[in-house]
Computed example of a mutant assay.
Amino acid sequence: MNTSVHEIADGVYRLSTCVPDVVPGGFTFNQYLIDAEEPLLFHTGPRRMFPLVADAVGRVIDVSRLRWISFGHVEADECGAMNEWLAAAPEARVMFNRLGCLVSVEDLADRPPEPVDDGARLDLGGHVVRTIATPHVPHGWEAQVLHDETTDTLLCGDLFTRTGDGPALVHDTDLIGPALEAEDLFGATALTTSTAPTLRDLADLEPRTLALMHGPAFVGDSAGALRDLADAYEARVTRAVAS
């Protein structure tokens, strides 16, 4: 395996590793590095993948410069290597929503995390990121996304998960079909009455780029893709209730 590095927005880098034996065709695990005065890494990768991802980060910045670590929810591929990153970057801290810090991160992290409120903005110096809590969307009580308001990039975690490998960045392609196929395969999304409204709230941000954790970054009608995904999930909830 190797980890590729591509700049998908100004100062935003996609670090991607395709693991071939998860499903036929492979499955990508992506992290996103925002190169700013205070660099931020979104997703840490699993603990055993740390050497690969650290090498990839090192192609963009000195790893010891890393200042902030965040992720979508508490799960191995999202935050498994959290403490390895804290050891490699002595000034780094984990930034996460207050609920997630309370129920998990305060105990799991080797250094106290920085709890933030829903909607809080952090100026990284050159990029401003906003933390948005999305409980149970796509899964996890403590789920969240980050919006890089400077480049209009939504770091959207497990939303739009798809299988296979491919280009780092795609334009105006279908995200919904592959996402629903992956949902049929994994059953990973918490489909509740709040799922669609949460996705529509994210669509109202009108992001330019969607930074997927499992799949390519997407540039195009991102708001439309979020609304289409909301409609598809809402239809599944409606069918389940009717049956």
Rank of each mutant, 00 (worst) to 15 (best):
S4I: 09
S4M: 13
S4V: 12
I8W: 09
D10L: 08
G11A: 10
V12L: 10
Y13Q: 11
R14G: 08
S16Q: 14
P20F: 09
V23E: 06
P24E: 13
P24S: 14
G25H: 03
G26Y: 11
T28I: 08
F29Q: 03
F29D: 04
Y32S: 12
Y32A: 10
L33Y: 00
L33H: 01
D35I: 02
D35M: 12
A36T: 01
A36F: 08
E37D: 09
E37C: 08
E38C: 12
P39D: 11
L40I: 07
H43C: 10
H43S: 15
T44W: 07
R47L: 15
M49A: 12
F50T: 03
P51F: 01
P51R: 04
P51Y: 00
L52C: 12
V53I: 12
V57M: 09
V57I: 07
I61G: 15
D62G: 08
S64T: 06
S64A: 11
S64C: 10
R65N: 01
R65A: 01
R65T: 01
R65S: 03
W68G: 09
W68D: 00
I69P: 07
I69C: 10
G72S: 04
G72W: 04
G72M: 02
G72N: 09
D77G: 08
G80L: 02
G80S: 01
G80P: 03
E84P: 03
W85I: 08
L86V: 04
A87M: 07
P90Y: 08
A92Q: 01
A92I: 00
R93N: 13
V94C: 14
M95F: 05
R98F: 04
L99G: 06
L99N: 13
C101R: 11
L102P: 03
S104E: 15
V105N: 09
L108C: 03
D110V: 00
R111H: 02
P112F: 12
E114P: 04
D117V: 10
R121A: 07
L122A: 02
L122E: 00
D123K: 14
D123G: 06
H127A: 00
H127S: 01
H127R: 04
V129M: 02
V129W: 00
R130S: 08
T131P: 05
T131N: 07
A133I: 07
T134F: 11
P135K: 00
V137C: 11
V137M: 06
